[in-house]
Computed example of a mutant assay.
Amino acid sequence: MHKQKPYLDNFPNENGYFGKFGGAYIPPELQKPFKEIEEAYQKLSKDFEFLSELKKIRKYYQGRPTPVYFAKNLSNIVGGNIYLKREDLNHTGSHKLNHCMAEALLAKYLGKKKLIAETGAGQHGVALATAAAYFGLECEIHMGEVDIKKEHPNVVKMKILGAKVVPVTKGLKTLKEAVDSAFESYLNDTKNSIFAIGSVVGPHPFPKMVRDFQSVIGFEAKEQFLEMTGKLPDMVTACVGGGSNAMGIFSAFIEDSVELYAVEPAGKGQNLGEHSASLTYGEEGIMHGFNSIMLKDERGEAAPVHSIASGIDYPSVGPEHAYLNSIGRTKIGLCTDEEAVDAFYTLSRLEGIIPALESSHALAFAMKYAKENKGKSILVSLSGRGDKDIDFIIENFPRD
């Protein structure tokens, strides 16, 4: 009898599919460079020298492992046991550096000179600019004008780190348009540059590659939680836009009897343009080179989206999230803008931890879940810190 391979070894398949989701729907001129990236990753993911260097970077530069923290004051208020995986303590203030350092190291092995990427909230941009500085590479970050204004502190950081920030003025001037712009720039110089996609989205191999690089979150958290409590959590939750921090923490628990909740931004209403809840309201469709679940307008194109959190206002979702939801392995949670702001202030004032607005979505859902499931243990991916959001919050949602 053959023993079934672990989930992470089985998915995606060799063509980059998670069930019917994923793949690489790209123009002919991108097929060769993306194949180059795939072959390099397959080789380097098993290469001792590459893995050893990445391990040293994570320990001595990033400050990993990040801790799991029991939020006692918050838990006492909501009636459950809430634990936070503190990715806000990872260097640059979010989980994004986990894959950015690895992608930059991959680029270095390929002899590339430049990193190109999109960013929404700016966390991916800051992390990639940091990685570029570390490895001595050029860096070009595409960011929507709306997000540039909203996330000004991160724009300043990117520029200080030496990155070129390209304002995107098309369409809604947010994350989707930033991805479009970055793709266009990459097409002009695939020989010397690499497109360092910022989430578990895009054409194969990026959904797999970014998941694998981010899985350090989940495997650290699982070991830490077992050491702290002697058992696994009842529930694990994370915010989902593209979904890199969520796949990072979910990876270690997929084959365990643990509830997994992907929390989507419910925004300010159920109409198109008022939310970014792709899995909740979307349908199957192809965008940015992969097949997944996406929000569509009346013409069948990517619909306008909204979220108070710039990092998760994306009209689609990573293909692995679409697959796991389709087979019932993950469940969907929803969080409104108002609930996210409330969770932002609650954690700040009860625990002295200021969370990113993206992370506040997962936290808000965990608080609701705890009130309805007294005594349950809940592990939250606190994917980033809220330094980038404080000006926006104080200006628009001040509280005494």
Rank of each mutant, 00 (worst) to 15 (best):
S215Q: 01
P315W: 03
V263F: 03
Q224L: 11
K96E: 07
G242V: 02
F21W: 13
G80Q: 03
G273H: 08
Y7Q: 06
N396M: 10
K173M: 14
R329P: 09
V258I: 09
K222R: 13
E177N: 11
S257R: 14
R399H: 15
K108Y: 05
E395M: 07
L115S: 02
G218S: 09
E53G: 11
E274Y: 02
K376E: 12
Y261T: 06
L97R: 00
F135K: 07
K20G: 00
E14S: 15
A129Y: 01
G16Q: 07
G285K: 02
I308M: 07
I249N: 10
A182H: 12
N76L: 13
A252C: 07
K96C: 08
P355K: 09
V166R: 06
P33N: 09
E259N: 15
I160A: 15
L363V: 11
D88H: 12
A303W: 06
K72S: 14
G16E: 11
S244K: 06
Y134N: 00
P67Q: 01
L324Y: 05
A370E: 00
I116C: 10
V78A: 02
V263C: 11
T174L: 09
I249E: 06
G122N: 05
K35D: 09
F50W: 08
K371T: 10
L44Y: 14
L51N: 15
A262L: 11
I378F: 02
G300I: 07
A262E: 02
N154T: 02
E49G: 08
G23Y: 04
Y186F: 15
P319S: 13
E220A: 10
K3N: 15
K85T: 01
Q123A: 12
I390Q: 10
I148V: 08
C239K: 00
E177M: 07
A133S: 13
L51A: 14
L279H: 03
K3C: 14
A121M: 07
E220W: 13
L347W: 06
L44S: 04
I160W: 10
N396H: 12
K231Q: 09
R211T: 08
L51Q: 12
V240F: 10
